[in-house]
Amino acid sequence: MDKEQIFNEVVGIIKDYVKDPSRLENVNMETSILEDLKVNSARLVDIIIAFEDTFDVEIEDDDADNIRTIGDAVNYIAGKVGTDQAVK
């Protein structure tokens, strides 16, 4: 799985928690999950759990704490599943 696939999977997971779909129109690696997509903090916990299930990884509390943007999630998961290809 390359980073572009991870990016698409990550956005696919997060979109279920975004109440205003228009906020996803220009989503990119710098997009803040809380500030830009208006996901609330409790739902971010659900998203981390969904990442664990989808990518079959375990995300420690300290690592989850550092996931604030889409790019943080993609890069972290890429590191866990073993790819370093850039998102186009």
Binding site: V45, D61, D62, D65
Partner: peptide
């Protein structure tokens, strides 16, 4: 601003 947001902390 960069303080941990991890609930268990």
């Amino acid at each position: 601003p960069d303080i941990s947001a991890s609930p268990r902390r």
